[in-house]
Write a protein that binds this DNA or RNA. Structure first.
Length: 288
DNA sequence: ATAATCACCTGCTCGC
DNA sequence: TGCGAGCAGGTGATTA
């Protein structure tokens, strides 16, 4: 489920409840996630202070000051069906509630993930010296984050970057912008939405799109993501943010889930096909 | 190197 | 009402 707006919505919902709180214990009920959860995770997090909540790509980073004074981060991915939300400690865990972060203040952050495509990792933060010398954007170096592209809402993401990276590529532009090594955070919903707004046919070869059209695509990606964040993300089935509330961007979707219906601009029937085994919706009239 | 496919899971909807 | 097929917001690994 979660693409960048949903992860960012989760981060914003959790931040006021988690930042500055101490972890009393961490409970893993089912460690069979995308990658097995480190059996030592609860011990590693015991009595840690949560100092910040960040997001990188679709990963949620929970920064910790450990009991020994060192720093570390929990790296959480929500996969397709995950959510992390605040609730009271007297609320009994239900089906698929795989992880709890118990807080000293009587509340907890509960991770629910029916499909178990999400993941939890622990990474110590490098010392200041190591961080300076590494040339990385992060204070820690984790294999999951190592080869990610730029954040779509940052200055490192602009039309000419996409243009240059795409030269020579013959694959569809939709696959190109969903590649997290090219740009992070864009999943199936927002790839469809942004390409529609930009007037670009998702099947067009990435390497055959002019520079000016990539300028427009960057604007479209940024606008769709920002509008969705403002709306609290897209809830199709079960997404809830950190405060447990659904997002209402679904009502603003331009093409996703509307195959066979009329294009909002030209009224021609929206086409539906599959690209990289993902449903792709577009207007043949408006998208070239 | 690039591009396409597979694999990992549960839950839900659809057609018969 | 039951049952199999297909599909769902992601992504690393594997295969051409």
């Amino acid at each position: 489920m979660p693409e960048l707006p949903e992860v960012e919505t989760t981060r914003r919902g959790l931040e006021p409840h988690l930042k500055g709180q101490r972890i009393s214990s961490l409970i893993v009920r089912d460690s069979r996630l995308r990658w097995p959860v480190d059996p030592q995770l609860p011990e590693l997090c015991r009595e840690a202070l949560i100092v910040a909540l960040r997001r990188r790509a679709k990963y949620l980073l929970i920064d910790l000051e450990l009991a020994d004074g060192r720093f570390a981060s929990l790296i959480v991915h929500l996969g397709m069906s995950g959510s992390l939300r605040i609730c009271e400690q007297n609320l009994a865990p239900g089906k698929h509630d795989h992880v709890d972060i118990m807080l000293a203040n009587g509340r907890l952050a509960r991770y629910n993930d029916p499909r178990r495509f999400g993941s939890w990792h622990f990474s110590r933060i490098m010392s200041a010296d190591e961080s300076r010398n590494s040339g990385l954007h992060f204070e820690f170096d984790h294999w999951l984050l190592r080869s990610l592209g730029p954040e779509p809402l940052s200055e490192d993401f602009y039309g000419d970057y996409l243009y240059r990276r795409s030269r020579g590529l013959r694959g569809p532009v939709k696959n190109f912008i969903m590649n997290q090594q090219v740009v992070v955070g864009v999943g199936n919903i927002y790839a469809n939405e942004a390409l529609f707004q930009a007037g670009i046919n998702p099947l067009r070869a990435a390497g055959r799109i002019a520079a000016a059209r990539y300028d427009r695509l960057v604007e479209s990606i940024q606008q769709r993501l920002l509008l969705s964040i403002e709306a609290g993300g897209t809830t199709l089935r079960d997404f809830v943010g950190g405060d447990g509330k659904p997002g209402y961007f679904a009502q603003s979707l331009l093409v996703y889930g509307r195959g066979g219906e009329a294009c909002i601009y030209c009224s021609s029937t929206l086409l539906e096909t599959r690209l990289n085994q993902r449903t792709t919706v577009y207007c043949r009239q408006c998208q070239r």
